[in-house]
Design a protein around this nucleic acid. Sequence first.
DNA 1: CGCGAATATATCGTGTTACGATATATCCAC
DNA 2: GTGGATATATCGTAACACGATATATTCGCG
Lengths: 159, 159
Amino acid sequence: MHRPTSNAHEKLLRRLAEFRFQLRRFLLYSERAAAHAGVQPQQHQLLLQIAGKPSDALATIAYAAERLGLQHHSVVELVDRSVRERLIERGEDPADARRVILTVTKKGRRVLDELSTDHATELSEMGPRLAQALHGIGTTKQKTRRTTARKRTERPKQQ
Amino acid sequence: MHRPTSNAHEKLLRRLAEFRFQLRRFLLYSERAAAHAGVQPQQHQLLLQIAGKPSDALATIAYAAERLGLQHHSVVELVDRSVRERLIERGEDPADARRVILTVTKKGRRVLDELSTDHATELSEMGPRLAQALHGIGTTKQKTRRTTARKRTERPKQQ
DNA sequence: CGCGAATATATCGTGTTACGATATATCCAC
DNA sequence: GTGGATATATCGTAACACGATATATTCGCG
C-alpha cells in the first residue's frame, strides 16, 4: 500500500510543518523577549503560571509542575534559581506544612508585566497566522485512514 | 504607575497562562508521541520540515536551521544523530558542492507518517481549545502597548 | 495516639542538547 | 587565481530536565 505521493498526505505534511514553524517562531520570540527582560524562558513561564493561576488554585510546587508540564523536582530547581534571583518567594501553607506557596516578588512582577504586554502585542500579530496554520490541519486529514481518528476523550499516553 | 490589581491585567495574565498551558500540553503530547515512535522530538521536527517543505525549497542544513529556529551547527549535530539512526540521508547538491541536501529515508518516512496522523488527530481535538485560548489574548491587551512592539524581524539579542 | 502509607518537597548525579568559538570547504566576483 | 562570502563541520562548555533517592509532614486506621 504505497502512497505514490498522496496529495492529501503531502498537504497534511506541509500544513503541519508550517504550523510548527509558526509555533517555533512564537516560542523563539518568547525566548528572546525573556532574555531581553533578564530572565530565562522557564522563569518567565513560572512567573506567568503563578501570577496567572485561577483564584481558587494554590501556587504550590506541584501546581507549577502540572502547569509547566515538568516533574516536581525540575520545578524545585527552577524555583531555587528564581528565588535566588528574587523573582519569586517561597512561603508556607498554614494549612499544610509540607507545601510551599509561591509568590511573585515586585521584581518578578515587573518582569512579568513587561513580558505580558510584549506577548499580547506579539500574539495579536502572530496569533491569526498561528490560528490559520492550525485551522487547516484537522480538516486536511480526511482520508489518511480513520483508525486513529476519533479516540477523542482520552489518550492512553502513559507518563 | 502602579496598577492596583488591574482587572484587565489580571485577565490578560490568566489568558496568557492558559494559552501557554495548552501549548505546553500539546508540546508534551508531541514529545511523547515522538518518544513512542522511537525518535526524539527534534528528530521528528527535522523529518517534518524536510518532508513538509514547499516544493520550491531545498532541504539544506541552513533551511532546516531556519525552519527549526536553530543555529546551523545545532542542526549539523541533529542531522548527524538522525543519519546515524537512518532517519534521513545526506545528499549532494549537484549545483553547489558546499550544500548538503537532506532526504528522508523509508524508515524516517514511516515514523513521520505515523506521527503526522497522530498529530492531526490530536490537533483536531486540541486545536480549537488552543485557538480559543489564543483568541482572547489580542483583544484583552488593553492599552500599554507600543514600546517593545514589533522588532520581531531581527533582534540584536546575542544572549 | 501511634505507626505505616501517602503526599509534598528537596538533593544528587547524569545525559542530552544547543550554544559560542572556530575550522574547513566551496563558490563567486573581479 | 585571490579574497571575501557562503555552507557545513568540529570541539569544548553550560544549562536544564530527568531518574533515583532522601526527608518532612499529613492522613488513615486500628
